[in-house]
């Protein structure tokens, strides 16, 4: 018996029960080492934090009360933000469907197509949305178009990945039955797999839209349109009462969208 691999216990009746040695101590040690070096690299210092945390609240203090007069200038940009998230999410979700179809190893017969599509989706997913947005502003100019493109790309990658994982986990029995009655692969997919994945697909798309609204506020910062442009401007001028107003409006909008989306998704599932 290999004593290095496993401990064992001999029961009174002579049976030998092998025990797996726990890896937990090693994992904890590794984590502690990572922690130590991360603290060194980032200059993390609890003392500074506790001493100067008061400064954190200064800006928040300046935000309250928000500048209500600023509100009527915000509606248009807010709607722009929502519009670009909506369009990007909608188109992205639609385009994700064929990509996921080709990326699913249980449906696709051509191994090369499957791998290539998966690789493209991975690349899209690793491309930081912010970078995509910035590049898009160089190409499409400053404005909502750039944001829409960035959100579109992100949505394809996000929804596409979840979708092909779902297709690969789908029940193939009905798919097989349809092939046995002479359906083509596409039509067997349309009638056997689609009904299975549809509710989750829609739910993921809505969830993605919700996240995109929140993210779109940041995209404005690099010139990709919407309320983020104003946020950038107000932060630049240190007009924190305006910032407060923007954040409040954004929070309310996100709250409403989040609840509406949760309601829709509950209905779907």
């Amino acid at each position: 018996m290999n004593m290095l691999k496993a401990k064992s216990i001999t029961l009174p009746n002579g049976k030998i029960v092998p025990f797996k040695r726990s890896k937990a101590p090693w994992i904890i040690l590794a984590l502690l080492i990572c922690f130590y070096y991360s603290v060194q690299i980032t200059g993390f210092d609890l003392q500074i934090l506790t001493k100067r945390i008061g400064q954190f609240w200064v800006i928040i203090g300046d935000m309250i009360p928000p500048n209500w007069n600023y509100l009527n200038k915000l509606w248009q940009p807010l709607f722009d933000t929502i519009k670009m998230s909506l369009l990007g999410s909608l188109l992205g979700s639609v385009f994700a469907l064929p990509l996921a179809y080709f990326a699913s190893s249980n449906i696709g017969k051509n191994q090369f197509v499957v791998t290539a599509t998966k690789f493209i989706l991975s690349l899209l997913r690793t491309l930081p949305t912010l970078v995509a947005a910035l590049i898009a502003t160089f190409i499409f100019g400053i404005g909502t178009m750039a944001g829409t493109v960035a959100i579109f790309l992100f949505t394809i990658a996000y929804v596409g990945k979840l979708l092909y994982e779902q297709i690969e986990n789908a029940d193939l029995k009905a798919f097989e039955a349809m092939q046995s009655m002479g359906h083509s692969t596409f039509s067997a997919f349309r009638y056997a797999i689609m009904p299975q994945i549809m509710p989750n697909y829609l739910s993921n798309s809505i969830f993605c839209f919700e996240g995109n609204v929140r993210y779109a506020a940041i995209l404005g910062y690099v010139g990709a349109g919407g309320i983020g442009l104003l946020l950038n401007e107000s932060l630049g001028w240190r007009n924190y009462a305006n910032v407060g107003m923007i954040l409040l409006l954004l929070a309310v909008a996100v709250f409403i969208i989040e609840n509406a989306s949760e309601y829709l998704r509950k209905k779907l599932l």
Partner: peptide, 29 residues
Amino acid sequence: RRGIGMIFQSFNLVNRISSLKNVLVSFVP
């Protein structure tokens, strides 16, 4: 395959839809 019907032990129906829609699928090709 259009001319040959196949029946499976586990029925192999599309679970989320009605009986009628399951039957209708046979016209699709």
